[in-house]
């Protein structure tokens, strides 16, 4: 009973990935838009984009952490 509930909970925790996917897509689409408008800033913008990507990805990893907590801690 509890085992099954744990698995369901861990699976449900991965729904959060949808948000992270949208976020990462948004970061890079904005990068392409910006570089298309002003190619001379490409290098600087890429740095910002990578930072934004890392921050967004970290949110997805919080979801992963929740899944691990549900599976192994309780």
């Amino acid at each position: 009973m509890l085992e099954g509930a744990k698995l369901i909970g861990a699976g449900a925790a991965t729904i959060a990935l949808a948000g992270a996917a949208v976020g990462i897509g948004n970061v890079f689409s904005s990068l392409i838009h910006s570089v298309a408008r002003n190619p001379s800033l490409a290098k600087q913008l890429f740095g910002y984009a990578i930072l934004g990507f890392a921050l967004t990805e970290a949110i997805a990893l919080f979801a992963l952490m929740m899944a691990f907590l549900i599976l192994f801690v309780f």
């Binding site: 921050l55 970290a58 990893l61 919080f62 992963l64 952490m65």
Partner: peptide, 13 residues
């Protein structure tokens, strides 16, 4: 919290 967990979660995952 988020500063530490970000690094930890990235590495572990």
């Amino acid at each position: 919290l988020s500063l530490g967990i970000r690094l930890f979660a990235n590495m572990m995952a």
